[in-house]
Amino acid sequence: MSKRTLVPQESKTKKRRSLIKGIIYALLILTAVICFIPFLMMLVNATRSNDAILTGFTLIPGTALMENYRTMMEYVNIWNGFKNSLIISVLVTLLTGYFSALTAYGFAFYTFKGKNFLFVFMLVMMMVPGQLGLIGFYELCKNLGILDTFIPLIIPAIASPFVVFFLRQYIQTTLHPSLIEAARIDGASELRIFHTVAIPIMMPAVATMSIFTFIGSWNNYIVPLVVLFSPEKYTLPVLMGFLKGSQVAQNLGSMYLGIAISVVPIMIAFLFLSKYIVNSISAGAVKE
C-alpha cells in the first residue's frame, strides 16, 4: 500500500519540478529576446532610409544601407577610427593582462616592506573616479610632450587596480605555495616560475579581465577626447561624438550604421568569450 502511494507522489514531484524548470527557461528566453530587440532594431535601422525610420518601427531590413554608408563616409572616416580603437584596445589588453598578473603574483606570494600599505592604497584608488584626475593628467602629458599621441591611452593602463585585485584573489585560491617552492628547489628563476607555473593557472582569470579591459578601452571616450587633437588619430567613440554633431545627424540611418559598426565587435567578443567569465569565477569560488 505504501509503495503504491509513494510512486504517484514521486511522479507528481517530478512533474512539478519539470514545470518550474520550464517556466524558468521560458522567462530566461523571453528576457534574452527583450534584451536583444534593441540591438536588432539598431541593425535594421542601419539599412533603412531616414524617412522610413521616422514612419515607425519594423524588423524588416531596408534597402538604404549603401546610401547611409556613403553619407557617413562623406563626413568621417569610420574605418580609420576603427583601426585606431583596435590598436589601442589590443595593446591595452595585452599590457594590462601581463603586468597586472605580474603585480598580483607579487602581492600574493612575496613579502616586502610596505606591502599592506601599497595594497590598501590600491584598493582606495579603485574607489576614486578617474575623471577627478583628468586635469592633472592632461598637464602631466603636456609637460612630457605626449599629447596627441596614443601613449597616454596605453601606458597608464599597464597595471589596473581592479584587475590586480581580482587576479590576486584568484591566484591565492588556485595556486598553492608548494608549487612555487618545488619550482625553486628545481632551480627555476623567479620570472621562469611566473611564466611557467603562475601564468598557466591564472589564464582563465586573465582571459576574463582581458574581455572587460578590451571593452572598457574600446568604449573610452573622455580621455581620447582630451588628449587627441588630430582627426586622423581619433578613436571610434570620439568619431561617433563628432558624427552626432555634424549634418549626418539629420540622417538617422547613417547614425545607426555608425553606432552598429562601433558596437558589433563588442557583441562578437561577448558572444564568443562570455563562457570564460563563468569559468574563471567558478574556478576560484572554492578553495581546496
Results as ranks from 00 to 15, higher is better:
residue 2 S to F: 09
residue 3 K to T: 11
residue 4 R to G: 13
residue 5 T to G: 00
residue 7 V to F: 15
residue 9 Q to P: 00
residue 11 S to P: 01
residue 14 K to Y: 01
residue 14 K to F: 01
residue 14 K to V: 10
residue 14 K to E: 13
residue 14 K to W: 01
residue 15 K to I: 12
residue 17 R to W: 10
residue 17 R to G: 09
residue 17 R to H: 09
residue 18 S to H: 03
residue 19 L to G: 00
residue 21 K to F: 11
residue 22 G to C: 01
residue 23 I to R: 00
residue 25 Y to M: 09
residue 25 Y to S: 06
residue 26 A to S: 14
residue 32 A to F: 12
residue 34 I to R: 00
residue 37 I to E: 08
residue 39 F to N: 04
residue 45 N to K: 05
residue 48 R to C: 09
residue 49 S to P: 02
residue 49 S to E: 04
residue 50 N to P: 04
residue 51 D to L: 15
residue 51 D to S: 15
residue 52 A to Q: 14
residue 54 L to Q: 11
residue 55 T to V: 06
residue 55 T to M: 07
residue 56 G to F: 02
residue 56 G to P: 04
residue 57 F to I: 13
residue 58 T to M: 08
residue 60 I to R: 03
residue 60 I to N: 02
residue 62 G to D: 07
residue 66 M to D: 08
residue 67 E to W: 00
residue 67 E to V: 14
residue 69 Y to W: 15
residue 69 Y to F: 15
residue 70 R to D: 13
residue 71 T to E: 14
residue 72 M to T: 05
residue 76 V to N: 03
residue 76 V to T: 11
residue 79 W to C: 08
residue 81 G to C: 06
residue 82 F to M: 12
residue 82 F to D: 10
residue 87 I to M: 11
residue 90 V to Q: 05
residue 90 V to S: 09
residue 92 V to R: 08
residue 102 L to F: 15
residue 103 T to P: 02
